[in-house]
Simulated assay, not measured.
Amino acid sequence: MEQFLKQGDGKVIVITGSMSSYIAFSGLAPHSAAKGGVKMLTQKVTAQQMPLLQEQ
């Protein structure tokens, strides 16, 4: 996260997900697991970095 902040004035990180991280679809277990992981990582990074981002 520190590297993102060092790189400049952009304060937005765009992360793409899909409905597969919310709803179970038949035959898409690997895809759903990956998208669910991206969703959770995004939430955790946001929670951990929120105090730092609010100072900016």
Rank of each mutant, 00 (worst) to 15 (best):
S26W: 04
A47K: 12
H31G: 00
Q3C: 07
S18I: 00
I23N: 01
A29T: 14
Q49K: 11
Q56Y: 11
L28Q: 01
K39M: 13
V45C: 12
M1G: 11
Q54G: 06
V14F: 05
Q56H: 07
K39L: 15
Q54W: 01
G37K: 02
D9F: 12
S18L: 01
L5M: 07
M50A: 15
S26H: 10
D9I: 12
S21H: 06
I23E: 01
E2I: 09
L28R: 04
T42R: 02
L5T: 03
V12S: 09
L41Y: 14
L52K: 15
E55Q: 15
V38H: 04
S32E: 00
S32A: 14
V14T: 07
V38C: 04
T42K: 02
S18M: 01
E2Y: 10
I13H: 08
Q54K: 08
A34V: 11
G37L: 02
A33V: 11
G27Y: 04
V45R: 10
F25K: 03
K11N: 10
Q3G: 13
H31A: 04
E55I: 13
V14L: 04
A47V: 15
L5A: 06
H31R: 06
L28A: 00
L52C: 13
F4L: 08
V12F: 14
K11E: 08
I13P: 00
L5V: 08
K11W: 06
E2G: 09
Q43R: 11
T16A: 05
G37R: 00
T16C: 05
Q48K: 14
P51E: 10
S26L: 03
M40Y: 10
G17V: 08
L28V: 01
G27H: 05
E55T: 14
Q49H: 14
M19H: 00
G17D: 05
L41W: 14
A33L: 12
T42D: 02
M1W: 05
L53P: 13
G37I: 05
G36S: 13
Y22L: 14
L41G: 07
E55F: 09
Q49M: 13
K39H: 12
G17L: 11
E2Q: 15
Q3M: 14
H31F: 05
G37V: 01
M19D: 01
P51L: 06
A29Q: 06
K11H: 07
K44A: 15
M50H: 14
E2D: 15
P30V: 03
F25Y: 03
G27I: 00
F25N: 02
P51D: 06
E55Y: 06
E2T: 12
V12W: 14
M19T: 06
S21R: 03
Q43T: 12
F25A: 00
Y22E: 09
I15M: 02
A34E: 02
T46Q: 11
Q43W: 10
M1H: 10
K35I: 10
Q54T: 15
A34F: 12
S21Y: 04
G8D: 00
K35M: 08
F4G: 06
V12R: 13
L53C: 09
